[in-house]
């Protein structure tokens, strides 16, 4: 088979409208960023909370945290997308269910962001738990001995240290969020992968399409990586690395 190259394809109009293929890809990038960043914020908030709960002395909280992590870790992300999109609305009270199915604005986007956010929160929770676990136990004791309550000790002493420790694994999680957002194509979010498939079918210039989209994902991952490196540098504490055990 021979391939007919056409690098000008991006500026050509799509078959069924007056947009160009480039417009499609730009829309795709926009939704990819929207889904990924929303999911990331959700994942950080919940992941840090759940991760911290799993290190508390309360067996109930630890158990709940473990259930959370196991639930999201043992079902494929794609299946979770379908669960949130098709199944969860069925379990809501009748009025809510109707609203979600018929009226909720940007339904695909909201569903994808929640799904990816919770999925990622379980992975962050695991990192945060490990980070807290790696701190010397004396830090908690010292905070409590000064009269801080346990929540204060977490906020002021334990989490600021644990989060610094987990920045490297969080960096790869952040890059994973962009990669995983591609699964949202399956519920009809118009993100990059969705647009790539659509453009490939519409234009029949698959290689150019995929190269462009691959490049865009690369840029996302690279930017995410640099962004986290910037945060890591900004939060670095003098002398902290020299301190051992």
């Amino acid at each position: 088979m021979n391939y007919h190259w056409n690098w000008g394809i991006f500026l050509e109009p799509v078959k069924s409208g007056d947009e160009t293929y480039l417009d499609w890809l730009i829309t795709g990038l926009g939704w990819t960023l929207a889904v990924s960043l929303t999911a990331w914020l959700l994942a950080l908030t919940i992941g840090i909370a759940v991760g911290a709960l799993r290190t508390t002395p309360s067996r109930l909280l630890v158990g709940l945290g473990n259930v959370w992590v196991e639930l999201f870790r043992n079902v494929p992300l794609l299946v979770q997308m379908f669960l949130w999109f098709f199944v969860v609305p069925e379990f809501l009270p009748r009025d809510w269910s109707l609203w979600v199915k018929q009226e909720m604005p940007a339904k695909e986007f909201v569903t994808a962001a929640i799904c990816l956010g919770l999925f990622t929160s379980a992975r962050i929770a695991e990192q945060v738990r490990a980070g807290v676990g790696s701190l010397p136990r004396g830090q908690r004791d010292a905070a409590l001995a000064l009269g801080l309550t346990l929540p204060q000790a977490y906020r002021q002493v334990i989490l600021p240290q644990a989060l610094r420790i987990v920045i490297p694994p969080l960096t790869s999680e952040f890059m994973n969020v962009f990669k995983n957002s591609s699964v949202a194509f399956a519920i009809g979010v118009l993100e990059l992968t969705f647009q790539a498939r659509q453009m490939q079918e519409d234009s029949e210039q698959g290689i150019e399409t995929y190269l462009a989209v691959t490049l865009l994902y690369f840029i996302c991952a690279f930017t995410a990586n640099r962004g986290m490196a910037w945060i890591e540098a900004r939060t670095r504490v003098p002398g902290l690395i020299a301190r051992s055990g």
Binding site: P136, G138, Q139, D141, L240
Partner: peptide, 18 residues
Amino acid sequence: KLRARVGMVFQHFELFPH
């Protein structure tokens, strides 16, 4: 509240490194 009135010093100092 009680601990706030009782000072404690640890073997490994336990200053908050951040």
